[in-house]
């Protein structure tokens, strides 16, 4: 390496003499970083998404390669966030790819002391049976004056503020049809 190459390889020199006075781009680049390719460039697809944490609603671009999320970036087109994400939004990739995420149904039987495995379809079937049983046990047709009630107070639900509108719509529609009134979410809290 000649002395000139050595000096030109020195980031401060490049920063002072080149086109990158803030030293955030070309000036700071090393040989190794010049060879790197961003995950965002090699992604198979990009999904336009929205941060799942607070209600600011920052835009996200979700980069996918081989069926896996490889990066989540702020969406610079968004008039709300202009590409920025806060620590939580920026941690979204860790959230969705976290090894702590549960991916299997877990079941705790009454008086049990440990979790057990359960097939998803079996779980859904068992839950449907329990819903119908709770409804049977606690159904109220009419009040003391004979006015309709059509309901069960034996079933409760809480949640929905991190869910999609379409999901909340189906939740309310189904619960209403089954006569379950006690449907609440974070908005009450």
């Amino acid at each position: 390496m000649g002395i000139r190459t050595f000096i030109e390889g020195w980031p401060v020199y490049r920063q002072l003499t080149g086109t990158d006075p803030l030293g955030r781009g070309a000036a700071a680049q090393s040989e190794r970083s010049a060879e790197l390719t961003a995950r965002t460039e090699t992604a198979d697809r990009v999904a336009r998404s929205v941060c799942p944490y607070c209600a600011v609603g920052c835009g996200q671009r979700v980069y996918v390669q081989d069926g896996r999320v490889t990066q989540i970036e702020g969406d610079w087109d968004s008039p709300i966030s202009r590409g920025r994400l806060c620590p939580k939004g920026a941690a979204s990739k860790s959230l969705v790819t976290s090894p702590l995420r549960q991916t299997k149904v877990r079941y705790r039987r009454p008086y049990g002391t440990e979790w057990e495995d359960l097939d998803l379809d079996v779980a859904l079937d068992m839950i449907a049976d329990r819903v119908l049983a709770a409804r049977e046990q606690t159904w109220e047709d009419v009040d003391d004056e004979g006015r309709p009630l059509n309901r069960t107070l034996g079933i409760s639900s809480l949640g929905g503020a991190t869910l999609d509108n379409e999901e909340n719509y189906l939740i309310k529609k189904l619960f209403t049809a089954m006569g379950a009134l006690q449907i609440e979410n974070q908005a009450r809290i």
């Binding site: 329990r130 819903v131 049983a133 709770a134 046990q137 606690t138 034996g154 079933i155 409760s156 639900s157 809480l158 949640g159 929905g160 503020a161 991190t162 869910l163 939740i171 979410n185 974070q186």
Partner: peptide, 8 residues
């Protein structure tokens, strides 16, 4: 009798 918790 029964309680659903949905992301809560």
């Amino acid at each position: 009798k029964g309680y659903f918790l949905l992301g809560q």
